[in-house]
């Protein structure tokens, strides 16, 4: 065919597409910027209000007081009172969510038939869709009365049932994300292990799980972040009683529950009570940030990268 004929038959409209490509890049970039700007804005407002808070309350008292009574006539600001409650409910929740979630993930990915997996995984994800307020009242009105039969001294509001139900609430996060990571490990690695005379259990334990480690740790970190930040369940079921304790039978107040308590009252803007929320919020943010950094280090140190 002649050269002229060729150029007549092929006429792509590239001049227009060059502009639209540029526009699309700009629009998408702008949207990406929104999420970054929002995060930055939140951090900045936290930082400024927190700085103002610490101009009135010395940081030493914030870290060493053993009482948390910011709304009293003679206020005390011992943040570890609230941290102990958040720590207690989160640990109970994770003791439920991590082992049960991981075993569920391993079962779904490695043992369940295709049929079982098809029904069980969506069912599990439904659990994640239950509103947390429902979980909160379920803990308070159903789980606590049952636990009170077997555990003497269990208060009506208590860290135990709030923690247990919070564990159920975040279980799908662990199970679903871990399952994705485990399922994504290439079949060729499993076959390599089987071909060496490894049993199914050995293959999962020594080859599949180490290769999926980064995804599993990510799911656990997300679960921790959700447990630490979870508000509704602990506010409803664990109570509003700030005390420095690790006794799961008692009523406690978590950091998030305190923020709810003050927000629901009528603390005027710029008052010290109002600024307290930001100091607590900042503490929550720092805890989550540190957890993220630790997990980042952990994953880089121990993961077995397969691609």
């Amino acid at each position: 065919m002649s050269k002229v004929g060729h150029s007549e038959r092929w006429k792509p409209k590239r001049s227009l597409s060059r502009w639209s490509e540029r526009a699309i890049k700009f629009i998408f970039g702008a949207f990406a910027l929104i999420s970054i700007a929002t995060t930055l804005g939140i951090i900045l407002s936290l930082v400024f209000e927190t700085i103002e808070f610490f101009q009135e309350v010395p940081i030493g008292r914030f870290l060493t007081d053993t009482e948390w009574t910011p709304l009293f006539a003679n206020p005390k600001y011992g943040i570890f009172v609230l941290i102990s409650a958040t720590f207690l409910t989160s640990v109970i929740a994770l003791l439920v969510a991590i082992p049960v979630g991981l075993m569920t993930a391993i079962y779904l990915s490695e043992h369940a038939s295709q049929q079982t997996r098809r029904y069980l995984k969506p069912a599990l994800e439904v659990l994640a869709g239950v509103p947390t307020v429902v979980y909160g009242y379920f803990a308070l009105l159903f789980v606590t009365p049952i636990l009170q039969i077997v555990i003497p001294g269990l208060e009506v509001f208590n860290a135990l049932s709030a923690g247990l139900i919070m564990g159920i609430a975040i279980l799908p996060t662990v199970a679903s994300l871990s399952e994705d990571a485990i399922y994504a490990v290439p079949q060729s690695l499993r076959q390599g292990a089987y071909a060496l005379g490894a049993t199914k259990q050995e293959t999962i334990q020594n080859v599949v799980l180490p290769a999926a480690l980064s995804g599993i740790v990510a799911s656990v970190i997300l679960a921790i972040a959700r447990a630490v930040g979870e508000t509704m369940i602990v506010t409803i079921a664990a109570g509003q009683n700030p005390r420095l304790t690790l006794d799961p039978r008692l009523s406690v107040q978590t950091m998030t529950a305190f923020i709810v308590q003050v927000s629901l009252g009528d603390a005027p803007t710029a008052s010290l009570e109002y600024k307290t929320i930001f100091a607590v919020g900042m503490t929550l943010f720092l805890i989550t940030l540190i957890l993220n950094m630790v997990s980042f280090w952990f994953v880089n140190r121990f993961r077995e990268k397969y691609d």
């Binding site: 290439p186 060496l196 049993t199 290769a211 077995e304 990268k305």
Partner: peptide
């Protein structure tokens, strides 16, 4: 499992463990 211990296999795409 015992069969695979006595009859080894090498695959099409190299699949060393990570």
């Amino acid at each position: 499992v015992e069969v695979r211990r006595r009859i080894g296999m090498v695959f099409q795409v190299p699949n060393p463990f990570p």
